[in-house]
Amino acid sequence: MLNGTAQPDNGLKPARPRSRGRLPGSPAFWFLIPAIFTLAAIGIYPLLLALYNSFHQYKLADLASGTPFIWFDNYIATLTDPSFWGALGRTALFLCVTLPIEVALGLFAALMLHRTTLPRMRALARVSLVIPMATTYAVVGLIGRLIFNRQFGVANYIGGLFGMPPQDWLADPTLAFVSVMIMDIWQWTPFCALILLAGLTMVPKEAEEAARLETPRWSKILWHLQRPYLLPGLTAILILRSADMLKMFDAVFTMTRGGPGTATEFISVYIQRVGFRLFDQGMASAQAILLLVLTIVLSRLYIRFVYREAA
């Protein structure tokens, strides 16, 4: 109605404005094209190629015989391979021992930084925590070789101060495993600390001050007040660190090359040996796909039992 006069209804609805941001011809779509091609080239294509190779007999040393389709033979051979299960067991042991230590030390550092009243100290600590995370895996492995060297390593020097005899860290199976653990804890405990510190900053200050007046025990405050704010970050830590440990290759290969013997031959190192030393790309692809499935299952379990509790 306009100026008191009713307008005739011709049965047509007014045209709605078209959303230009979602049209294929819009500038936003063309800006996404490089990211889509990069994701397809780096992530999707290698995954599809590995899945294709896992169902074929693909041996680099015998390409003359072709790459016949062999169904699930590579997967059956992998699941019945004792060396595969041995490497997976060492990886699981490394994950189950190292990850809780990193979370515990990270939580301790986060609580200390959260309780400090010195802004400059907190800022300096945050910058210092970023340094190990910014170090590449290969450099961490080289640093580990220097620290645990028998002749001039810092580890034997510190042990000598306490009267310990020099140890050949990288030649002993147990000590080599522990050495890799120490370097991984040094590199990724700061990551856990920063994530958990971010969760602690989400706790309302009024509720935290009231809780400290109610009880002086920090364990009760941590469990009843701060724990719900830490669980989402803890879920992210568990997912990311578990995935990193399952595919950890650079630091181990640079530091010990999987030795001595098979003491530090984790699953990623074993897959590399099968694919590029035994030249069996089909078997290595099947093992990589199984490792991917295991990573997805672990992530779903973390979300189901840790993140759901936070929600």
Rank of each mutant, 00 (worst) to 15 (best):
P173F: 08
L124F: 15
V178E: 00
I131S: 10
T116S: 12
N156L: 08
P173H: 07
G159I: 04
A176Y: 02
F191P: 01
M133L: 12
L142W: 09
A193G: 03
A207G: 11
K205R: 14
P165L: 07
N156K: 11
F108R: 09
M183W: 00
V130C: 13
K205T: 13
T201D: 15
A123V: 08
Y137L: 12
F148A: 05
P190F: 01
L161D: 09
F152Q: 02
N156A: 12
I131W: 13
L142H: 07
M164K: 06
T135D: 14
M164A: 10
F148Y: 11
T135W: 10
E209Y: 06
Y137S: 14
G159R: 02
T116K: 01
E214D: 15
Y157D: 10
A210Q: 06
L200S: 09
M112C: 12
A125I: 01
D184E: 14
G153K: 01
A210Y: 05
E209M: 08
V139Y: 10
M181Y: 01
M181C: 09
Q187E: 15
G141W: 06
L170A: 01
A207M: 15
E209T: 06
Q151C: 03
S179Y: 05
L197S: 14
I143D: 01
T117G: 13
L194P: 08
P166W: 05
L194W: 00
M112Y: 08
V139S: 10
A210R: 05
